[in-house]
Design a protein around this nucleic acid. Sequence first.
DNA 1: TTAATATACGGAGCACTGCTCCGCTTTGTC
DNA 2: GACAAAGCGGAGCAGTGCTCCGTATATTAA
Lengths: 197, 197
Amino acid sequence: MATTGEPEERPSRGRRADARRNQQALLTAAAKVFVASGVDAPIRAIAAEAGVGMGTIYRHFPTRSDLVIAVYRHQVEACAEAGPRLLAEADSPFTALRRWVDLFVDFLVTKHGLAQAMQSGGGGFDALHAYFLDRLVPVCGQLLDASVEAGEIGSDIRAFELMRGIGNLCVGRENDPDYDPRRLIELLLRGLRPPRS
Amino acid sequence: MATTGEPEERPSRGRRADARRNQQALLTAAAKVFVASGVDAPIRAIAAEAGVGMGTIYRHFPTRSDLVIAVYRHQVEACAEAGPRLLAEADSPFTALRRWVDLFVDFLVTKHGLAQAMQSGGGGFDALHAYFLDRLVPVCGQLLDASVEAGEIGSDIRAFELMRGIGNLCVGRENDPDYDPRRLIELLLRGLRPPRS
DNA sequence: TTAATATACGGAGCACTGCTCCGCTTTGTC
DNA sequence: GACAAAGCGGAGCAGTGCTCCGTATATTAA
């Protein structure tokens, strides 16, 4: 079963002080290790970095997903909240969509292995997959709907499919000069435009 | 170093009879296990299925890539050879490209985990990645060039990037009714069309 | 302050996997 | 049949995920 939960949302009221400290230390350590070794770094390495035992990390974050979600929650939220804002600010819904996709891609490609993990790769990442989708698909759907309404999009693509495709295109070794996911995503977006009359 | 290989191309002349038998048994066993458990199935499982020891499998196929390549070589070759043929047969270069991509996608999505492995996921799959690219990028490039020449393509996408994008879009659990990579690939191809005048 | 209890900690240990290494077996040859 | 070369098998090591439970600590009550 996927753990749905916000382990660090409630700031640990009523729990023991050492537990709170350890949870914070784990988040900090995980962020550091993720940058260095990717989101599928050995759990032991994160525990060591935080100076705690294996049991502690599993108690606070039963699955890998829980830890990754906790580490990146703020940024995912920011991305989700940017959707409506862009829609209000931009010249047109499609421009907003384009910018939002850019934001999303920026987030993905700077996190080593996150794009891979976000696609239900089959590790302990199921909850992560669900979290991203639950949080961002509606936002993407809103941008998509607005673009359709404005007649800027001809295709009947669904938000889930688009997001999954974008995520997939971001999978792979970062810093590869021969592969820029943005270029392909631009192509994908261009493919959404209505057929020439 | 990536083994460049063709271990089964030369039909084992001059080698001992048991070695030839085992190699064949391994190919058969691997094909079966790949279907059941994907291309990243435990090596032990393949060895067991073939009724040989660990040493034997590593002697014949030093890396996982070597084994995967050997198992699917025929189909990759068929795909590579289909390129020029389609170019000759089809109404237009872009139609040929479209059909070829279809062929490629068919191949990828029916092999559990192959698309994932083909993108240098970082396992023992480096040689596999190189093989696919060496063999298919030139074919794709030919189709792309012909399409550009015919004025059917406006973008300056390179073959490597396109193939990599297609491969990426095919990554993920097969048989997911909510995600059809073909739809996104169609969008991608549509995005290649020249901008409306 | 001290005692009692719930809470949390730590890491040994098991299962699984990749890969190597080397003593033993089989094959081909004379 | 004897011999060397070729090949085989699997024990064993290292890395990893995850669990389990004896021990330590924080908190509360007295």
